[in-house]
Amino acid sequence: MNNLKLLLLVLLTWQLTLTSCKKTEIIKKENGVSDAPSKFTEIKTNANFAWSTTKKIKIEYKPTNNDTRVSVLKVEDLNGHVYLKKLQKTSEKFSGSIEVPIHLKTIKYSIAGIQKELNANAGVLNIEVK
């Protein structure tokens, strides 16, 4: 019988310890403490997360029929950092992509005397002369 009491006492103590730990965690969350892991090993991500600090922007140049001009297509950010530079026939299609810092907000292109600024979060940079 004494052994049985001892077993019960141990189990009850164990259960109380667990409850106490949970309460601490709940209080921490309710007080607005960041849920961000404090150790690298505590980070959990899904299998698709690429750990990348860049984003890909597709470049789609839409040709203009019967336009025989040839000019330099340049894609850059507002600080003049160039991501693409190539000779472009106005009447020919071009598809490509560039990799830019993920926090970049605005990108611009120039071709045939035209300059345009576009949203760098759009995913696709559609370029045309007119």
């Binding site: 892991p37 690298f40 959990k44 991500t45 698709n48 690429a50 600090t53 926090h103």
Partner: peptide, 20 residues
């Protein structure tokens, strides 16, 4: 690494949407 770069963990756990 998370102790040196203080927003890294939040970036990673957000799937790259926070603190880019």
């Amino acid at each position: 690494f998370t102790e040196a770069f203080l927003k890294f963990a939040e970036w990673a756990t957000s799937g790259g949407s926070s603190y880019t």
